[in-house]
Nucleic acid binder design. Structure first.
Ligand SMILES: [Zn+2]
Ligand SMILES: [Zn+2]
Ligand SMILES: [Zn+2]
Ligand SMILES: [Zn+2]
Lengths: 161, 161
DNA sequence: AATAAAATGTTATAATATTGCATTTTATCC
DNA sequence: GGATAAAATGCAATATTATAACATTTTATT
């Protein structure tokens, strides 16, 4: 099994299902409580491979008839999901996306298509080690790092020409 | 002459002066108008090696008795400065910092001390090329990229122990 | 000097995020 | 099982960051 690359057509329900399964497993291991609300937020985040803003998630929850939750509800769920490595926040977009490799410690590296917004998480060892070397050279102790690369995905480049 | 490393004690007035001089030169070359207001904003941004929020800049301008400018005033100046490569925006902090190498095209790479907030811009070729390779491998066309590494600067690490 | 373009001033408002406190749900202890 | 504590959620208000829309002023061009 190869992971779907997001750009390609794929059975996206599988992405959501896998994400939820992985999340349950990880939370169990961490002794963290993946409540119904948190699962709902996580599945909204996974509804596409595009980053989603907190207020967009809020609307989706409303639409689903879960009452009309207030912002803190969503932000708290997102905080929980981030703490448990299940979602990442993309600072340049004020938006959130499901983590592709939850459970493994890793920094945050993304390719973001400015056209279609499809965003893929990458886990480049050479990027990571370049960052590490760069920091070490300056005696800087890394706590966490984030890489956000904005550009055009293969599909959108083709559509252009 | 070696560039001050921000962590070390240095004559910071020189940083500000150099930044202003460089800015004038670049704007002249670009046919861009570095107005009094824009210079004021740029020097506020350079008042420390710490990223500064738009509203903080606004306050500094007020304190200086330039009247009480409104947010758009500052945001417009910051937009101008960014377009001309004189400041960078740090998305993870919603804050702005003077560019260390204006004039040369480069992506945005920073080491941010979460303790003292001192932030240094780095220009690591190995990071840049790792990013490039990583994107190419996925047929992703980079428009721009940003790297924000959060951790502890050498000074704050020492103070710890 | 007349005109157009660019920059700034001003007011209002949008978008994102947090604080503080009440209530409910879940876990823990006896 | 019932009492207690801890965690999660609901909810109202508000803080923070950023932009839109339009009037006025300044600067450049003719
Ligand atoms: Zn998918
Ligand atoms: Zn695309
Ligand atoms: Zn300095
Ligand atoms: Zn520090």
């Amino acid at each position: 099994m190869t992971a779907p690359t997001a750009y390609e057509k794929h059975d996206h329900h599988q992405c959501i299902d896998e994400a939820l399964l992985a999340a349950r497993k990880i939370c169990k291991k961490n002794g963290a409580r993946l409540t119904a609300l948190r699962e709902q937020v996580l599945s909204k985040v996974w509804q596409s491979h595009r980053p989603l803003g907190a207020y967009a998630i809020l609307e989706l929850l409303s639409d689903e008839g879960q009452g009309h939750p207030a912002p803190p509800t969503v932000y708290r769920a997102l905080d929980f999901l981030q703490e448990n490595g299940l979602v990442h926040r993309l600072a340049s977009l004020n938006a959130y996306i499901g983590c592709d490799a939850p459970g493994r410690a890793h920094d945050s590296q993304f390719l973001i298509c400015r056209h279609c917004q499809i965003t893929v998480e990458v886990a480049s060892d050479s990027v990571s080690s370049a960052l590490k070397t760069c920091a070490e050279r300056r005696d800087f102790a890394i706590l966490h790092s984030s890489v956000e690369i904005v550009g055009e995905c293969p599909n959108c480049q083709q559509a252009q020409s």
